[in-house]
Amino acid sequence: MSNKNGTSSPKASSSDLTALEDRVKAAQERHKPKDYSQNDDGSLLGMAWRLSTELVVSILVGMGLGYGLDMLFGTKPWCLFIGLGFGFAAGIRSVLATADKMDAKTSDIPIGDDMPLSDDELDY
């Protein structure tokens, strides 16, 4: 880069510049927001765990809310059934969204809107 006196020789400057450019690029690459969801349970078992817990938990939460409303209004068992239906709908919805995300990782499909922000949406 520089000779013994600490001044850079004019001859080497063009290659120096390209080297510097490469380093700047590498540094910028490092500071780019990474898509961490990529690392999130990449294995098949992880996917299976994730999808199944999402569905089951959504149904249980829906039923729990329905049961709570039943207790509140004394309308046993109707809110529970309605909650079951909504829970199932929510579960299917989140499973589909997660499956979409898993797909988007492998192919270059634009990802859904409940993802963490992508690179160009983040403003620093």
């Binding site: 994730r50 817990t53 938990v57």
Partner: peptide, 17 residues
């Protein structure tokens, strides 16, 4: 209601997982 259920079930999913 679906949005509310999804919002509430996310942390539960976290815990169960």
């Amino acid at each position: 209601p679906i949005e509310i259920i999804s919002f509430l079930s996310r942390p539960v999913t976290l815990a169960v997982r």
